[in-house]
Design a protein around this nucleic acid. Structure first.
Lengths: 208, 208
DNA sequence: CTTAAAAAATGAACTCATTCAATCTTTTTC
DNA sequence: GAAAAAGATTGAATGAGTTCATTTTTTAAG
């Protein structure tokens, strides 16, 4: 059986993460003090720092869990995507976007993304960056799948296309979280327009 | 003539910005204390805050000046670009990248970009975002110019293409500054590969 | 020139994130 | 099962960004 120490450790870690996530959602990142997180998790301030390098890392840890879910729910779309390139990309990307605000606020996204840029070497920044890379791969895999099916012309560099589409949607998502007034609908429309030229041009002529 | 007050104000602002920029370059963003900046600028700590909302805003102000230069140097390329789409994009984008590290370190870029994401409503974040938008427009204008010349097929949505290319290069630049080990050459190669499919496909057939 | 009003500068005080030496708890050793 | 070693927890102390009541300087009015 697992030792007492290991169980306590896992439990404390869970408590800290849950306390932080709920506080971030309730009062926002800046107003959530480490002292408050520690109190809610029933540990001391010092203990919080035994589990996470700093405040930003706690946030990025919670955001990363969200990205993992998005990644997972994207898999089923890649396995069985819509027939046309444009539709397939649209469905996958809209799925990403729709997931984004279920558990996280725009402020949490902003802070997490900012942190992972500023401190790219922190443990959970690395994790976040790695997950971003996997999302990027997922888009490439979708394009490749479409190519194998004949919807995308042979000879097209599916990795390059996937990366460009992903980088574009990621940057647009960044603009979205920077602008409290922008709606999900507007985001989707804009990305849809941006994807169209490339999606149409890489598609096999008979399928347009 | 301009009043004494206005002259003093402009002079203090210049001193603060220069003091901050030099300190950021010498010791890095985190190690440069507001107190040090104030001392070098020969003002008090409080005065620094009369001119800039917070520390990040000072950095973003210096970075924005750099982006303005990049924007300006890009204009001449847009006015008279290379003949083929791929070359034209490559030359413009390489110009952006080559400029980026002349006065600013990767750390300064990271911190500035992170700050403008986290605090998008601060005065200089707005300015930075606006300049980013103008860079994006510049890429679109290049594509449009190529279209008018016949190098890019008529009917192509040049704005959509420009935005996608810009968002991609911007995200790749972000990856570049996050990774201290990545060289400018690697960055250019990767973006070059990513641009190729789109650049080739939007080009008029006879020009390939 | 004097004085009142407006604008700016100032720096001590405040708030948190972060650190670390001391303490306590769990595991291992004999 | 006692003692030593290893592993974790603790919270007071530290330090840097930010605030704001007070003071100083500039401008405008009489």
């Amino acid at each position: 059986m697992t030792g007492l120490r290991a169980r306590q450790k896992a439990d404390r870690n869970r408590r800290i993460l849950e306390a932080a996530a709920s506080l971030f959602r309730e009062v926002g990142y800046d107003s959530a003090r480490i002292e408050d997180i520690a109190e809610r998790a029933e540990v001391s301030v010092g203990t919080v720092y035994n589990y996470y390098e700093n405040k930003g890392d706690i946030l990025v840890a919670t955001v990363s869990m969200e990205v993992e879910e998005v990644l997972e729910s994207g898999m089923s779309i890649v396995e069985n995507p819509p027939a046309t390139t444009l539709d397939a990309l649209q469905v996958l990307i809209d799925q990403y976007f729709d997931h984004s605000l279920v558990y996280l606020s725009k402020e949490m996204w902003r802070t997490a993304m900012a942190f992972s840029i500023q401190q790219p070497e922190s443990p959970f920044s690395r994790r976040y960056t790695e997950l971003d890379g996997r999302l990027c791969d997922q888009v490439s895999m979708l394009v490749q799948k479409l190519q194998l099916r004949g919807a995308v012309m042979p000879g097209i560099d599916t990795v390059a296309v996937g990366q460009m589409v992903f980088n574009n949607l990621n940057m647009m998502f960044l603009e979205f979280v920077k602008d409290e007034a922008m709606t999900l609908e507007t985001l989707k429309e804009r990305v849809g327009r941006q994807n169209r030229p490339l999606a149409v041009l890489i598609s096999s002529p008979r399928l347009q």
